[in-house]
Design a binder for these strands. Structure first.
Lengths: 200, 200
DNA sequence: TTTATTATTAACCATTCGGTTAAACTAATT
DNA sequence: AATTAGTTTAACCGAATGGTTAATAATAAA
């Protein structure tokens, strides 16, 4: 019970302030537990951070696994990936913040967690996705493009819909509410761009 | 002289550790000055951060200004924007890190600086860009799309080429060297995607 | 040369931080 | 009732941290 309360409070805290900005005492306060409990269960601030990050990453991975079937078509991929990403991010605002900070800090913890996870669970393997993309290229479903650039485009467009929003807003001097319509538009725009730009 | 040395060292420090992770003593050490000098010139850590952020943002804005002429064509826009962004980011690695962290922290300082800058210098106005995009829609140069989604797509694809790289690498289990070829490929891929996806 | 202003320094400081400790409480087992 | 293992707490701690101070050096103006 306490362990769960700590994890929940820590996720909030790390999302808002980052690893170095987060305060152990504040996490304890939010969780309604004694600060010593935090060290009792997680032994250090950094260790608590790793636990939060692991939970966060696994949450998204389980979503992506659902769509990655061997018979997936490229067009479906370009529709479903943005949909899953945007929907997940809109409902888990902490994810973007924690993950963004982690990536800027060279993603050292992120990489370690992915490595562990792949060892435990062989289903979502890199080679599986590679095979899928190669198949689409051979089938003539998509324009020839490096696998890497293709993944970069998908991930960039989805993830950055949240982080990059203030920039686009400032350039155009507008203020976009982050509501259902915003999410729907963003999914559609990304999906269309990917399909027009990458399908044959 | 000292002021400049402090700014340079601070930029490095804030990029690597963020506002809360940065250490004033470390900045002073890097700059080769006494810590008190830092407070003598900038009065507080946060104030120093704002100065660094302002310098950083103005550096990019001056690049973008160069291409934004009233007779710019949409196809040129889709070619030059990724080129400017990617080239600038590849040569100013600190920019991405500072800006990324700032945006995740809700971009409060960023917004304030943009507001000031627009008041001082009317050349790069939001209305100017809006007019350009509206013209392209009327001319039939680009597919109808909200201005906002269009800017989001451009900014996302460019900015995230750096932050999102570890994710794409992990999904495909590859390691991409960040060299001239990488930058060239990324510019081409983004530019092609934008042109195929948004030009009529 | 004197005066006023700007730069620079070493030493200092209050506060906050992550982390520890030792004792006490709780609840199931024997 | 005694033992055991897991849980919880208040009080404590040394090391940093951002920031200050008061004295001094360098420079320019009078």
């Amino acid at each position: 019970m306490s362990k769960e309360k700590i994890l929940t409070a820590a996720k909030e805290e790390f999302a808002e302030f980052g690893l170095s900005g987060a305060r152990v005492s504040r996490i304890a306060e939010k969780a309604g537990i004694n600060k010593a409990m935090l060290f009792y269960y997680f032994s250090s601030k950094e260790n608590l951070y790793k636990s939060v990050l692991r939970q966060t990453i696994l949450g998204l991975m389980s979503q992506i696994k659902k769509i990655l079937t061997p018979d997936l078509k490229a067009s479906e991929f370009f529709e479903k990936m943005p949909e899953i990403y945007i929907n997940y991010f809109s409902k888990n605002k902490d994810f973007i913040k924690i993950m963004g900070r982690e990536l800027i800090n060279d993603g050292k913890h992120y990489k370690a967690i992915i490595r562990e996870t792949l060892e435990e669970d062989g289903r979502l393997t890199p080679s599986g996705i590679k095979e899928l993309i190669n198949k689409w290229i051979k089938n003539g479903e998509i324009k020839e493009e490096s696998q890497f650039n293709m993944m970069m485009n998908i991930v960039s467009l989805s993830l950055f819909s949240f982080i990059g929003k203030p920039i686009a807003e400032n350039i155009l001097d507008i203020n976009i509410k982050e509501d259902e319509i915003f999410y729907k538009n963003r999914i559609e725009s990304i999906s269309n761009l990917l399909k027009r730009g990458m399908l044959k």
